[in-house]
Amino acid sequence: MTTKTTHGRTSTTRYRTSGWLAFAGTVALVIGAFNVIDGLVALFKDGYYLVNENQIMVFDYTAWGWIWLIIGIIQIGVGAAIMAGQMWARVLGVIFAFVVAIGHLAFLVAFPLWSVLTISLCVLLIYALTAPPPGSRAD
């Protein structure tokens, strides 16, 4: 809640709470956790995925492991900030959801079910972050 004075009168502005933003923060935390798990598995258990390293698009498993681990940690922080009602986190949440969905398209050959699930959650996250009314908060 904020208070401002205009021409001698004090007005109080109340932010509307949004279940969508609380949901979006939770989904961002889940996607971040999924990406951390992806990263750790790619770094420490090479034989887990369905294809050889030379069949995965763009990078080898070690590079993918570090990419997913770093993005996952950032997404967990963004998810917490979304739940705290930070507008910058909503913007970063949409950007990271888009990047992760595209990244999982490249990773689709390695682990199809996990990638399809993560892409679906990213689409849901983008909707949840863009659907709430302006000025709404997750608390």
Rank of each mutant, 00 (worst) to 15 (best):
T3C: 05
K4P: 04
T5I: 15
H7I: 02
H7F: 07
G8D: 06
R9D: 01
R9C: 04
S11D: 07
S11M: 07
S11R: 04
S11C: 01
T12Y: 07
T12F: 01
T13G: 01
R14G: 00
Y15W: 06
T17V: 02
T17E: 09
S18T: 07
A22R: 01
F23N: 11
A24I: 01
G25S: 05
T26C: 10
V27C: 05
V27Q: 04
L29E: 00
V30Q: 08
V30T: 13
N35Y: 00
V36M: 12
V36F: 04
D38A: 06
G39D: 00
L40A: 02
L40K: 01
A42M: 08
L43I: 05
L43Q: 08
L43S: 08
K45N: 14
G47S: 12
L50P: 14
L50Q: 11
V51G: 07
N52T: 11
N54D: 13
N54K: 10
Q55E: 15
I56P: 06
I56C: 04
V58Q: 14
V58P: 15
V58Y: 15
Y61L: 14
T62R: 07
A63Q: 11
W64E: 01
G65H: 13
G65Y: 10
W66N: 04
I67Y: 07
L69T: 06
I70H: 03
I71C: 03
I71V: 14
G72L: 02
G72K: 00
G72H: 02
G72P: 03
G72D: 04
I73Q: 09
I74G: 03
I74R: 11
I74V: 13
Q75D: 14
Q75Y: 03
Q75I: 02
I76V: 13
G77M: 14
V78H: 06
V78E: 12
G79S: 14
A81Q: 15
A81E: 13
A81V: 13
I82Q: 06
I82E: 01
G85K: 07
M87K: 09
W88F: 09
L92W: 15
F96A: 08
A97K: 01
A97F: 01
F98N: 09
V100F: 02
A101R: 04
G103T: 02
L105S: 11
A106T: 13
F107Y: 14
L108C: 03
L108S: 01
A110G: 05
P112T: 12
P112A: 05
P112H: 08
L113G: 15
V116C: 10
L117D: 00
T118R: 09
T118N: 12
S120R: 09
L124R: 00
L124P: 04
Y127T: 01
A128L: 15
L129Q: 11
L129K: 05
A131N: 12
P132Q: 02
P132H: 05
P132E: 03
P133A: 15
P133W: 03
G135Q: 12
R137F: 07
A138P: 09
